[in-house]
């Protein structure tokens, strides 16, 4: 017709950077905004823990033993007289470490495995993915326990163990996304253009796989935090006197009737953190979902 070929999108869309656009969209979704707020709160608590916490989380007898929440000790004290509020605030540091390190390990290894298997196809794919299937047939916690048996107990080892245990999950997701992307015409177009293997993988596949993995990874942080809390509760993760939430829960077990605050506050912290990362993950999914993007 006369000029149906004029550009449709205004220049404004092009000027905003991608990050800015994503952030605005994230804040517009209710779950994304709430999730982001909770996670930000957690990060602030972790970074400024020494400024926020009124007491040294490790110092015993900061106050009387097992005192209920009061103006002096907002969340009460534990059986050694340590300030619970300070311990919960410092716990945020450990929790974030757990989340980032565990997910970091599983995400990068899973990504690599899935990418190689999906791109290569044939025997490489069959061997790698069957291996992943075998690992997948065990519960994550069993694999984590096995890893801890080899590595020895401790919080850092627990993070590594959790990271290793969830590799199969990420590998499978990456693999399935790669299979979908690999069959899209743009990938064929890149082959036809003469692109090398590295270019095909890193320029064409990777950027199209990563959005999905960001979503899964965000959700995965909450799983990792829960798993670490579980291991610490069993005494395989954090060791005394580390202020780790799961460990705090486990040490409050015998005092549940006398000092319920020792259980309530770390438990709440875990619950809110998990909720926060889940909401953030949902929000990110809404933003990155290809169906939401205009064709």
């Amino acid at each position: 017709m006369s000029a149906p070929d004029t550009a449709q999108a205004g220049p404004a869309a092009a000027r905003l950077s991608g990050v800015q656009q994503a952030l605005t969209a994230l804040l517009r979704s209710p779950s994304g905004a709430v999730g982001l707020a909770i996670v930000l709160l957690l990060v602030i608590a972790a970074v400024f823990a020494p400024l926020i916490a009124p007491h040294d989380p490790l110092r015993m007898a900061s106050g009387p033993r097992l005192s209920p929440p009061s103006a002096a000790h907002w969340m009460g004290t534990d059986q050694l007289g340590r300030d619970m509020f300070s311990r919960v605030v410092f716990g945020a540091r450990l929790t974030l470490q757990i989340g980032v390190i565990a997910v970091g390990i599983s995400l990068t290894s899973g990504l690599l495995l899935g990418l190689v298997a999906g791109y290569a196809g044939g025997w490489t794919e069959r061997v790698l993915m069957r291996l992943v299937d075998v690992l997948f047939s065990f519960t994550e916690i069993v694999i984590a326990l096995a890893c801890l048996a080899i590595l020895g107990v401790g919080l850092v080892n627990a993070m590594i163990a959790i990271g290793i245990a969830s590799i199969p999950f990420y590998a499978r997701i990456t693999h399935s996304v790669v299979l979908v992307e690999k069959n899209k015409p743009y990938f064929e177009a890149a082959i036809a253009a003469g692109a090398s293997r590295l270019r095909l993988i890193f320029v064409h596949l990777l950027p199209n796989v990563i959005p999905t993995l960001i979503v899964v990874g965000t959700l995965g942080v909450s799983t990792a935090v829960l798993a670490a809390a579980g291991l610490s509760f069993l005494g395989l993760g954090a060791q005394p006197p580390q202020p780790e939430w799961g460990f705090m829960l486990s040490s409050s077990r015998d005092l549940i009737a006398r000092a319920p605050w020792m259980m309530i506050f770390p438990g709440l912290a875990i619950a809110i953190t998990v909720l926060g990362f889940n909401l953030l993950g949902d929000g990110v999914r809404e933003v990155l979902d290809p169906r939401q993007r205009a064709r």
């Binding site: 015409p185 743009y186 890149a190 950027p207 290809p290 993007r293």
Partner: peptide
């Protein structure tokens, strides 16, 4: 043509 263009480039 849309599918033939990498959406992230």
């Amino acid at each position: 043509p849309f599918a033939a263009l990498n959406p992230r480039m």
